Simulated scan of single mutants.
Amino acid sequence: MERRSFLRGAVVSGSAAAFGGSLWRGSAAADPAQPGAGPYGSPGQADGNGIRLPQGFTSRVVARSGQQVPGTSYTWHPAPDGGACFADGDGWIYVSNSEVTPSGGAGSIRFTAAGEVAGAYRIVSGTRQNCAGGKTPWDTWLSCEEVDRGYVYETDPWGAKAAVRRDAMGRFKHEAAAADPERRVVYLTEDVSDGCFYRFRPTTWGSLSSGTLEVLRMGSGTSGPVTWAQVPDPSGASAATRNQVAGAKRFDGGEGCHYASDSGTCWFTTKGDGRVWQYDAAAQTLELAYDDSLIPGTAPLTGVDNVTGSRSGDLYVAEDGGNMEICLITPDDVVAPFLRVEGQGGSEITGPAFTPDGTRLYFSSQRGTTGSSSGGITYEITGPFRT
């Protein structure tokens, strides 16, 4: 394995430049990010919501699965998963997937500039196990089905337009998506133990109705140049998309995916081996950027899953497993817990996303205290986030 740290390109929340600030400024270091003291100090005692936070931060519950979102008539969906925030005038919208079958889908909560709930509603229904996804530069949400031969659905966070199934983006066990406006492609991860990393080239940028699906090819190593090859049958009817191209690079359980405009880098995680990868889109090279097995002793961050970034350049990584923490990795290559959810060991942390101004962080505990998809809880964290 290579011992590499996070290269400091700009990583942003979702798949588009939601913050304007950059992450990981500077050059590559020789070693991976190491445990140390975080910029906010250690999480303190659990608050009334069971969240351990650094001093100065507070939490509130904004929605619970199976219950009406406070102040609305909308019942929050089970198993909340991938999410993103969208600017809405002076307020914002938080979008969240529902990782259940057969109903699945996704919902939105609208907030005023003061953070008060202004509405909640469904944006796609009748889909299956909607896990992660990604935000597009034209402010739509790509909701991805994590099932064999699953689809990508393009949805409207405002709920004004009907969701559209994007068949051309391929049928496989989709996880996350990230749009690259410079090369006019959308990167896609696949959540299986021998999955692949894809990119979709729309015929017309801004429309996902047609285009070409390609898969990354590379040798057996963890870094080096890559090539892309067209997937002959994106429908997966003849064979699974990951098995159609000789030399396709295999990844152990693709998860979160982010494109960093400032550096031309797409970052993605693989939960099966605890790794973070970086694809340099301009140079067309792939590198292993983080591996939890390369941390001496007990790694503070395990079960890497969804990721999001703050305006200050800190990367927030949610755990599926581990200690039910959101850990941050600073531009100084320090890995530290930011928060921990207590009493919910049968759950996982999903959907971390900052508001457009970077002052509030949303996330969900997918199965809450019950360990069941009907027990999901969605939280908001406020406090002195670095800007």
Rank of each mutant, 00 (worst) to 15 (best):
V95E: 09
Q45K: 13
D81C: 02
R52F: 03
S65I: 01
G82M: 06
A46Q: 02
Y74V: 00
F86K: 08
D31I: 10
P43D: 05
I51Y: 10
P32L: 12
S22A: 14
N97K: 01
V100N: 02
G44L: 09
A18C: 14
P78T: 04
P35K: 07
A46H: 03
Q34V: 08
S98V: 00
P35V: 10
A28G: 14
G104Q: 03
S103P: 04
G91T: 01
I109E: 05
P54I: 01
Q34P: 01
R60L: 05
A18Y: 06
G20H: 11
T75W: 02
A30K: 12
Y94M: 05
I93N: 01
D81Q: 07
D90Q: 15
H77I: 14
S103V: 11
Q34G: 06
G89N: 07
G50E: 02
P70E: 05
W24P: 12
G89Y: 08
Q68R: 15
S65G: 07
S42M: 10
G107Q: 01
T75V: 15
G82E: 08
A63T: 08
A37S: 07
P54L: 06
S98A: 07
A84F: 08
N49Y: 11
T75N: 08
G66I: 02
Y74M: 08
D90P: 10
D47I: 06
W92I: 05
L23G: 13
G21Y: 12
Y74W: 11
A30N: 11
L53N: 04
P80G: 00
W92F: 15
F57R: 00
S59Y: 12
A87R: 15
I93T: 04
E99R: 07
G83P: 09
T112W: 03
I109V: 14
G105L: 06
H77Q: 15
G107T: 02
Q67E: 13
D88S: 14
S59W: 11
T72L: 01
W24C: 11
A33D: 14
D31T: 15
R64L: 07
G26E: 05
G38D: 00
G89E: 06
V62N: 08
G44M: 10
A84P: 02
A18K: 08
S96P: 00
G89D: 09
T101N: 11
A106P: 04
A87Y: 08
S59P: 12
W76P: 00
Q67Y: 06
V62E: 09
G21M: 13
W76H: 11
A46Y: 01
G21T: 14
F86I: 07
T58S: 15
V69C: 00
Q45G: 15
A114D: 13
A30V: 12
G71F: 03
P78I: 04
L53M: 03
G38P: 03
F86A: 07
S108A: 15
T72R: 05
A113L: 01
Y94P: 04
G71N: 05
D31Q: 13
Q68V: 11
A30W: 12
R52P: 03
A37W: 04
D90I: 09
